[in-house]
Design a protein around this nucleic acid. Structure first.
Length: 534
DNA sequence: CAGTGAGCGAGCTTCCGCTTGACTT
């Protein structure tokens, strides 16, 4: 009998099928050890971390140990990334007491081939990766547990928190709010002319905007009772490429927008769909898709929509920080879907997005028309229209076409205006973040991981830093104070590229070029630098 | 005798990242 260990019980089930009878597959349910919650858990001098059992995990590992005792070989198949390597490390530390034949198996998708290959090519644990996890963990702990108490004292409020991820996230929200507060709305005016031709109405606007309606009046007088002539018509084809398939960030933002739910609710439903076998792993930063599956989906498109709707599997550049242990989020099969309710709705969003990503581009024709009043050629008016020549992926994704088509116009056409008037508009402040747009921004900046996006939002709410108002995130007064304080005392931590810089350092540890304790100390000192100078 | 203050100990918030099931109400 051989033993295979993974993180997720759902994965354990599928892998168990591939490996067959003389294998036992067990799941750790994520990390098994972590720093203690109620103390720092890091020696301030040596930076030596004190990892302790997570709740319930001692018992779980003891059970695995009993099986390990009698196993011919033990394969550690935790996720092929920094965190997964750390889990494997602690597993080995425990299991090697009863059995020395322990190997590290790496796989990037759950298919029979890749699992068998992982077993054949299994090697030893990569200590560099483990040390990078220590560095990441210790740094996050030091920042969180050393800086938070400074806030309690400074702002005499208990329960406030500072973190490598949450504090820059809060800064985004607070800075947006400041922009909104200082935004001065400005009115502006333009001259608009309504026409109608062949029963289709359209409008043209004057080349110039005005700050005051009185500035537009003289022009308006000139235009009284005049006819217009079409001076030029330009047509341009443009291509609208299909969207990428979903990863966690885009599923959370698109899902919460379309189904009107919070990002945590979306994540919860996705997790359920995953456990019930409807979709692939829901915590991923990757857009990769299994080749054979993509072929299967493309065949489905051809059969149900026709050849002209078939696109191709594209290779997307993964973000530099992407650790890519999993594929994109897609249906496991198109033959199996949930029966009803919100689960079905999210499933259908995922399946249509997946198919759309593999279908053909939409083709749009843009028309630009310029017109003059017959009485004055120097006054130019512009009209624009869009026509959908081919819907492509939009049909499959169910995206409604919003473009407006112009009537057929040719140079020299004479038109009688239906109405000439001044329209008032106002410049708009930038919008507040929604949960979804915040998650997308965090992903773009490389702040946080797919497994934590939803919790980041939750933490900011729990700390009383943000409130949800009409679906948008509004910072509270204490949030302003916290961000102002941190910006003054710890500017390098609040820099949006802090995480990216930290990742660079972790890369060096992973490649074995730097000692993890030295680097961790260096970064932490840099964060504290300005503060301790006083 | 009442009020004051020093000294001491107990009880305390907090991080990010990996994963769900086993608890209680």
């Amino acid at each position: 009998m051989k033993l295979f260990i993974v993180e997720s019980p759902t994965k354990a089930k599928s892998i168990s099928k591939y490996l067959g009878k003389d294998w036992i597959v067990k799941a750790t349910l994520g990390h098994i050890k972590d720093l203690p919650e109620r103390s720092l858990g890091v020696d301030p001098k040596t930076l030596e971390p004190k990892y302790v059992w997570l709740k319930g995990k001692k018992k779980l590992v003891e059970n695995i140990k009993k099986i390990a005792k009698n196993a011919q070989k033990i394969y550690l198949g935790t996720d092929p990334d920094r965190e997964g390597e750390a889990i494997a490390y602690f597993l080995k530390e425990e299991l090697s007491r009863v059995n020395g034949r322990i190997y590290r198996a790496m796989f990037y998708e759950i298919t029979k081939n890749s699992i068998l290959k992982a077993v054949q090519t299994a090697k030893d644990i990569d200590l560099n990766l483990v040390h990078a996890q220590f560095a990441r963990r210790v740094l996050d702990r030091l920042i969180g547990y050393k800086l938070s108490p400074l806030l309690w004292k400074e702002l005499t409020t208990k329960g406030l928190s500072v973190g490598r991820v949450q504090s820059p996230a809060l800064r985004l929200i607070v800075e947006r709010e400041k922009q909104i507060q200082s935004f001065k709305k400005k009115k502006y005016y333009y001259i608009k002319v309504d026409f109608e031709k062949d029963g289709v109405s359209f409008s043209a606007v004057f080349q110039q905007r005005f700050e005051k309606p009185s500035n537009a009046e003289p022009y308006l007088k000139k235009l009284k009772d005049t006819m217009f002539v079409v001076n030029a018509v330009k047509k341009e084809k443009s291509i609208s490429d299909p969207p990428k398939p979903f990863n966690t960030a885009s599923l959370q933002s698109e899902g919460s927008k379309k189904l009107n739910l919070s990002v945590s609710e979306i994540q919860k439903i996705a997790q359920k769909l995953y456990e019930e076998g409807y979709i692939t792993y829901p915590r991923t930063d990757s857009y990769r898709m299994n080749q054979e599956k993509a072929q299967e989906f493309i065949a489905f498109i051809e059969k149900n929509y026709g050849k002209e709707y078939v696109g191709k599997l594209r290779n997307f550049r993964e973000g530099r920080l992407s650790q890519s242990a999993h594929e994109c989020i897609r249906p496991t099969s198109l033959r199996k879907k949930p029966k009803e309710g919100i689960e079905l709705k999210l499933y259908l969003l995922i399946s249509s997005r997946t198919l759309a990503s593999l279908s053909s581009p939409a083709i749009i024709e843009k028309t630009y028309v310029s017109l003059n009043p017959i009485t004055d050629e120097a006054l130019e008016f512009f009209a624009e229209g869009e026509d959908l020549l081919f819907d492509g992926w939009m049909k499959i994704y169910g995206k409604e076409w919003e473009g407006k088509k112009l009537p057929e116009l040719t140079q020299g056409d004479i038109l009688k205006p239906k109405r000439i008037y001044i329209e008032e508009r106002e410049t708009q402040p930038p919008p507040r973040y929604t949960e979804g747009s915040l998650v997308k921004t965090l992903e773009r900046l490389g702040i946080g991981r797919p497994s934590t996006y939803a919790t980041i939002v939750k933490t900011l709410k729990q700390r009383g830093y943000v409130a949800v108002e009409k679906g948008h995130l509004k910072p509270t007064e204490i949030a302003f104070k916290v961000v102002d304080y941190l910006m003054e005392k710890f500017p390098s931590l609040m820099d949006y590229s802090f995480t990216a810089n930290m990742e660079d350092m972790l890369d060096e540890i992973e490649e074995g070029r730097k000692d993890w304790k030295l680097i961790t100390k260096e970064i932490y000192r840099k964060v504290l630098h300005e503060y301790t100078q006083e």
